[in-house]
């Protein structure tokens, strides 16, 4: 048995060694042989009475603290806030994404995933005046596009233009290229947030990862390793939600060339990060940019974007029905005729 765990549980080294001699070499072993009733003063006969106290201490050490649900509810009420994305999608999601939730944006290339990530960052920076971290695996963050989005959001919120530059300072961008960098980064964000030492992280409300699939896909050939990284990153993302952060991740939609239609999502396309990734999100939104079908290329000055919401059971009660489609509209760029 690792000495340090025995030590932190308050076991003497004699007790730990005695347990080891009795065949209890890890905490899992201890949990297996420990009496089901923690108040029992007698250890299972196989180990004898002397070990009862040591086993009890270990089990107590491993057991998590209990929190009454009303405490959780009050805590969440006091801290959670709504992060907006864009008008139409917010209506679909019943207001936006709450801190403590993961929103997954799934769509094909050019369907507006990154744009929605930028719009969400802009709302955090301007509306909540909070900080956002953009984890960028594919060099997708475009500062000029973000400036434009911030200006648009500021106009929509009736904020003066002077608010835009401070908003740009509230958003930080990290460029990463590997899955292990993504995982390490997320762990450090969680640690920095928990440590409460750095003021910047205390005001953090949103973490965007665009896109985990790009960093993970090259690993998926290596069998178990790729899958393990998917699990590690999704766990790190879930851990961020426990620090009262809203998380937005993108996912690629690949598969058959059939147009996305309501009810046909599963049949016609699949997510690049599949079943082991599914559990990460509280809400998944499918995006589809309307495309002219066929080879004729009439000029399409703006790209209307259609979204479907698939809500998981985890998300709290909100208005708005599951899997309703809206047409979100990408703002036409001002510098384009």
């Amino acid at each position: 048995m690792a000495g340090l765990l025995a030590h932190s549980a308050g076991l003497s080294s004699e007790q730990a060694e005695a347990l080891a001699r009795a065949g209890v070499t890890s905490v899992c072993d201890a949990l297996l042989v420990a009496s089901v009733d923690s108040t029992a003063t007698r250890a299972p006969s196989a180990l004898g009475v002397v070990h009862a106290d040591a086993l009890k201490r270990l089990v107590e050490h491993c057991a998590p603290a209990l929190v009454p649900a009303d405490v959780l509810w009050v805590r969440r009420k006091a801290k959670a806030c709504m992060v907006r994305t864009c008008t139409e999608l917010d209506a679909l999601m019943g207001g936006g994404v709450m801190t403590g939730e993961v929103l997954e944006l799934a769509g094909r290339s050019g369907s507006g995933k990154t744009w929605l990530c930028l719009a969400t960052c802009a709302h955090v920076a301007l509306e909540l005046r909070a900080h956002a971290l953009f984890v960028d695996t594919g060099a997708n963050f475009c500062a000029r596009a973000f400036l434009e989005e911030c200006s648009r959001v500021a106009r929509a919120l009736d904020l003066p233009d002077e608010q835009v530059a401070p908003a740009l300072r509230r958003v930080r961008v990290v460029r990463v290229s590997d899955a292990d960098e993504v995982a390490a980064l997320l762990e450090h964000v969680r640690a920095a947030r928990a440590a409460k030492a750095d003021a910047w992280y205390s005001r953090l409300a949103l973490v965007v990862v665009d896109s985990p699939a790009l960093a993970l896909m090259p690993l998926l050939a290596r069998g178990n390793a790729g899958h393990a990284w998917i699990v590690t990153i999704s766990r790190a993302l879930r851990a961020l939600t426990h620090c009262n952060l809203a998380v937005v991740v993108t996912n690629h939609l690949v598969g058959a060339e059939v147009a996305l239609r309501e009810g046909l999502i599963e049949d016609s396309a699949r997510l690049a990060l599949g079943s082991s990734w599914r559990a990460v999100s509280d809400m998944r939104v499918y995006l589809d940019a309307a495309r002219p079908s066929g080879a004729t290329l009439a000029a399409a000055p703006t790209a209307p974007c259609t979204a479907w919401l698939e809500r998981s059971h985890r998300s709290g009660p909100r208005e708005g029905s599951v899997r309703r489609a809206v047409a979100a509209r990408r703002a036409p760029a001002s510098d384009c005729q």
């Binding site: 290339s109 050019g110 990154t114 744009w115 997708n140 475009c142 000029r144 596009a145 434009e148 940019a289 290329l297 009439a298 000029a299 399409a300 000055p301 703006t302 790209a303 990408r330 036409p332 760029a333 510098d335 384009c336």
Partner: peptide, 11 residues
């Protein structure tokens, strides 16, 4: 321009 961060689809 089929995909771009700064402009919608335009030909």
């Amino acid at each position: 321009v089929d995909k771009s961060a700064t402009t919608p689809r335009v030909s």
